[in-house]
């Protein structure tokens, strides 16, 4: 009898929602998360990391910095550096409300992000998002889809993806905004009732990613719409997206908040 099968399967599969924040073991040891710079280890005049970077995310010189909005987290810079002046940590907490807060410089510098802007307070317990893929390669979309699954269970935080922009509180955009999708994206944004927010997920959505400078794409959502939350990565780990959403909804435990307050 199939209901017996279903119940048996459920017993076998068990309850699998991960607590948030989860145990660090959930993340692979080779995961490339928040980059940390130690400029005192640099050799004067060395540009190895900047030259290895495919998108020009690294600035060397007096105040070296790496822009996470451009970063593809490929690790080429860390591999090119012989002095380990740039390493990728296991910290997945990288989201930021303002674009400039995505620029990481010295290891112990804190970027002052304002606490959850007033706009987000309305959505503290109920946030309905409409996802728009504007040229995304499907990896960011897949990681967003995965947030709805058992292990991450976005629904328990009151966040849900809806079918119609009229039902939504905001847009979750992926992709560099290809020219062919620009009009559709604008129309979708116009259909979202106020107050509304826009979240840019992934390097492409923040800056164009590998497609930066292409005439076929607009170079990120920021070129088309006002962005309220940036989530870097290529693609961002589901934890990065979840952490960003929860922090901005004011649901993260301050004890575990990242250095990016």
């Amino acid at each position: 009898m199939s209901i017996a099968n279903i119940l048996a399967a459920r017993i076998k599969q068990g309850h699998r929602t991960l607590p948030f924040p989860p145990d660090q073991s959930v993340i692979s040891d080779r995961y490339r998360g928040l980059p940390r710079l130690s400029p005192d280890r640099c050799v004067a005049g060395c540009r190895a990391c900047a030259e290895a970077c495919p998108t020009g995310a690294i600035r060397v010189g007096d105040a070296p910095a790496i822009d996470m909005g451009l970063c593809l987290f490929c690790g080429e810079c860390a591999a090119a550096c012989e002095r380990q002046a740039i390493v990728f940590s296991q910290d997945y907490r990288m989201a930021a409300c303002s674009r400039s807060d995505l620029v990481v410089d010295r290891e112990d510098r804190r970027a002052a992000t304002s606490s959850a802007p007033v706009k987000w307070r309305l959505f503290r317990r109920s946030l309905k998002l409409r996802q728009v893929s504007a040229g995304g390669c499907n990896a960011c979309e897949a990681d967003i889809n995965v947030l709805g699954t058992l292990a991450w269970d976005l629904g328990r935080f009151g966040v849900q993806f809806v079918a119609s922009p009229r039902h939504a509180d905001g847009l979750l955009v992926t992709g560099p905004v290809s020219r062919n999708m620009e009009l559709a994206l604008r129309k979708t944004y116009d259909a979202v009732p106020e107050p509304r927010i826009v979240i840019a997920v992934g390097a492409c959505a923040i800056s164009g990613g590998p497609y930066m400078g292409h005439e076929e794409a607009r170079g990120g959502v920021g070129a088309v719409l006002p962005v309220d939350l940036h989530i870097p990565g290529c693609p961002p780990h589901p934890l990065t997206i979840l952490d960003g959403l929860l922090r901005v909804m004011g649901k993260s435990d301050p004890q575990t908040a990242s250095p990016f307050r």
């Binding site: 599969q13 068990g14 309850h15 058992l150 269970d153």
Partner: peptide, 9 residues
């Protein structure tokens, strides 16, 4: 409960 996840409040 049937799916094995926490679910919305």
């Amino acid at each position: 409960l049937f799916a094995g996840r926490q679910g919305p409040p």
